[in-house]
């Protein structure tokens, strides 16, 4: 499915004269998990708050399920579930009562959904224990359960794994993947935890200082992070035939700029270099490229250079 769930066009948000979001444009498609990656203060939460209607942009537009305009967005937000910053819980109520409160608020008549959701997020056994006595991880789980009320088509989760223990992280990750796969739910998750996002998201949005630096799919990210020998030369076609004939490998990719990414022979660069030289190819670049996830992120946001 490629239905546009959310389209944001040139969104700018200003606080006290400073742009905290600048001309942000993104499109979310149905049934995908989008990882919103950015440092503290990058604008992740601001972007989510704007989508949820908790804040208003200076300029630009938000289109939710094909509708735009203040009134239409209010209506379409009924198809949205959100947990932004920290879970909103009534401390003196149990998990069940908290869910009941939000269920009534959203006009959901089905009472069974409370028990179902509590079980789904692993809080089925909390009984009458009040939310104020919950651990941070339990509060996060309850916040996610509240966000899931009404089976939203777009789920927005701001740092949902904060405070979760390792098992909790895996459980929530599996839950999100399951929701995405089984219910075609579109999920937008922000996190600092890049390895975790890497295991959850299908698409990535890298935001830095209020600007979208890059949007890419998991495949593109893997491609960008994969270690390879990058070769630029005057005869790329001859180079590829040498790779296939002499080195017996097809594990390479010709890029649009005619440079070649070779994923084999990383441990035997000298052999590759010698063969190229012996075949009279003039090389303009021969380097090892590829990043760890963290280094790739840093390179995109303009920090340290690639490893």
């Amino acid at each position: 499915m490629n239905d546009g769930v959310l389209k944001i066009n040139n969104l700018t948000k200003t606080y006290k004269g400073t742009d905290v979001l600048h001309n942000v444009s993104i499109t979310l498609e149905a049934g995908k998990i989008y990882g919103l990656i950015g440092q503290n203060g990058a604008g992740k939460t601001t972007l989510m708050r704007l989508i949820a209607g908790l804040s208003f942009p200076k300029s630009g537009s938000i289109e939710l399920f094909g509708h735009t305009g203040e009134k239409a967005l209010e209506t379409e937000r009924k198809r949205l579930g959100a947990m932004i910053e920290y879970p909103g819980l009534t401390p003196n109520m149990s998990a069940g009562d908290n869910l009941k409160l939000h269920r009534i608020m959203r006009g959901i008549p089905n009472k069974e959904v409370e028990a179902e959701l509590l079980t789904l997020v692993g809080l089925g056994e909390t009984g009458k224990k009040k939310a104020k006595n919950f651990s941070l991880g339990m509060k996060q789980r309850l916040g996610i359960a509240i966000a899931l009320l009404g089976n939203p088509e777009l789920l927005i989760l701001d740092e949902p794994i904060n405070g979760l223990d390792p098992i909790g992280v895996v459980e929530i990750r599996n839950l999100l993947i399951k929701l995405c796969e089984e219910r075609q739910m579109t999920i937008l998750i922000s996190s600092h935890n890049l390895p975790e996002l890497y295991q959850t998201a299908t698409d990535y949005i890298i935001i830095h200082k209020g600007e979208i630096k890059q949007t890419l799919t998991l495949e593109q990210l893997e491609e960008n992070c994969r270690h390879h020998i990058l070769i630029s030369c005057d005869q790329p076609e001859k180079l590829t035939s040498i790779l296939e004939m002499a080195l017996n490998t097809t594990n390479y990719k010709v890029m649009p700029d005619q440079s070649v990414k070779l994923y084999d022979y990383l441990d035997d660069k000298a052999l590759v270099a010698r063969l190229i030289f012996e075949n009279g190819i003039i090389v303009t670049n021969f380097s090892i490229e590829g990043d760890t996830l963290e280094n790739y992120f840093i390179s995109v946001v303009g920090g340290e250079s690639h490893a």
Partner: peptide
């Protein structure tokens, strides 16, 4: 504080 108002607005109440 409890973000009940936040939730009401983000789930479509004016």
């Amino acid at each position: 504080d409890n973000k009940t108002i936040h939730d009401a607005i983000s789930s479509g109440s004016s």
